[in-house]
Design a protein around this nucleic acid. Structure first.
Lengths: 143, 143
DNA sequence: CTTTACGTTTACGTTAACGTAAAGCTCTGC
DNA sequence: GCAGAGCTTTACGTTAACGTAAACGTAAAG
């Protein structure tokens, strides 16, 4: 066998999506360390299957990882990202919990709207900054 | 004198914008601690005037503080926020530095565009999550 | 059989961004 | 003149999110 064992699980179909990934597969794909991935597991954000000691990541685990990283890009803490991920399944049957979940969703939405405004204004200011910089450059060249 | 001395500086005009603020003025206005504000100064993001030992914040200092807080909302580190604030004045005459500044601006723009995409997708998912939650709620009530 | 490549757990170290005293000035109202 | 409010500096403590290293297991390749 050509050392293909420890990498992704053999794909019976054409070549669309592996059935599983190793920890370093995911680390490479997303440009992070294996330490980080294990850390996320420690914090309860992922819980991959195991073959013996070795972690096996399914496509759903990979999706969770993507959600975590998107959260990071938006400046969320791991706790916040976990809360968001938890919004994906309303298996928390309890009516009261569902009500709180709705409030939580609404609150996140408000925060995102603020971030959106922040981005818009910052983008506008970047435009101005670029203009000023180009002007400054022109002045330097004209001499 | 009516204890108005230690607060904001007396405003000669109608009542539009104070000429200066105390550190606790700003702390209250933005819902942060004075410790945080002094910390930002330590890190070189603000440098207020002084009357003796006491810090006096001008409107421009207040603006800088607002920029810092906006940066935080977008998940920027204080270093990143400083870099962004530094983009506001191309007094860095040197042509080479100006070129790098342009690159830096472009890079920030790219990052903001990614954040924008992240927000859009997350907002969509929040909508779906809300729908599922409401459905789950309905199921609970129908019984 | 030994090297090489990958995986594991355990544990101490590090950085950013403040929090939290402690100890001391300096006005202002009473 | 003294208490109190608000300012100062100095300094040690804390949390999050990993980094880094040690010490070990296992399986394929030469």
């Amino acid at each position: 066998m050509k050392s293909e064992q420890r990498k992704s699980e053999a794909d019976p179909r054409g070549g669309a999506e592996p059935a599983s990934y190793s920890i370093s597969d995911l680390a490479k794909e997303f440009g992070i360390t294996t330490r980080a991935i294990r850390f996320y597991e420690d914090k309860g954000l992922i819980s991959p299957a195991r073959r013996g000691q070795t972690r096996i990541y399914r496509p759903e685990d990979r999706v969770r990882l993507m959600l975590i990283l998107r959260g990071k890009r938006l400046g969320f803490s791991l706790d916040e990202s976990r809360e968001i991920i938890d919004m994906y399944d309303p298996e928390h049957g309890n009516v009261e919990q569902l009500q709180r979940l709705l409030q939580h969703i609404e609150q996140k939405r408000t925060q995102l709207q603020q971030q959106l405004r922040d981005i818009q204004s910052l983008m506008g200011e970047l435009d101005e900054a670029e203009a000023r910089t180009r002007a400054s450059l022109a002045k330097n060249k004209e001499h």
